[in-house]
Simulated scan of single mutants.
Amino acid sequence: MRCSYFDAGECRSCTLMGRPYADQLAEKQRHCAGILDDPGIDWLPPVASAEDGYRNRAKMVVTGTVEAPRLGILGADGHGVDLTGCGVCSPGLRATFPVLSRFITTARLTPYDVPRRRGELKYLLLTESPDGRVMLRFVLRTDEALPRIRKHLATLLTELPQLAVVTANLQPEHKAVLEGEREIPLTDADSLRVRAGDVDLHVLPKSFFQTNTAIASALYRQGRDWIREVAPATVWDLYCGVGGFALHGAGPGRTVTGIEISPEAITAAERSRDAARLTGVSFVAGDATAYAVAAPTPPDLVVVNPPRRGIGPELSGWLETSGVRHVIYSSCYAPSLGRDLAAMPSLRPRKARLLDMFPQTRHYEVITLLERG
Rank of each mutant, 00 (worst) to 15 (best):
C14D: 04
D23E: 08
E27L: 06
H31G: 02
H31S: 07
G40A: 14
S49Q: 02
D52L: 11
R55W: 11
E67Q: 14
L71W: 06
G72S: 12
G78S: 04
H79F: 14
T84R: 00
C86D: 02
C89M: 15
R108Y: 02
L109S: 10
Y112K: 03
V114Q: 09
R116V: 11
R118T: 15
L124P: 01
P130G: 01
V134A: 01
R137I: 01
R137G: 12
L140S: 15
A145K: 05
I149D: 10
R150V: 07
L153Q: 06
L160Y: 02
K175Y: 06
E179T: 09
R182Q: 15
I184K: 11
P185D: 05
S191H: 12
S191E: 08
L192Q: 00
A196G: 06
D198V: 08
L204V: 14
S207I: 14
L219W: 05
R221K: 06
W226S: 09
R228P: 06
C240Q: 10
G251H: 04
P252C: 10
I261L: 09
S272G: 03
D274R: 15
S282C: 11
P296F: 07
P299G: 04
D300L: 08
V302L: 04
P306T: 10
G317S: 06
G323M: 14
V324Y: 04
L337Y: 09
R339H: 08
A343T: 03
P345C: 12
R348A: 15
L354Q: 00
T361D: 03
H363R: 06
E371I: 07
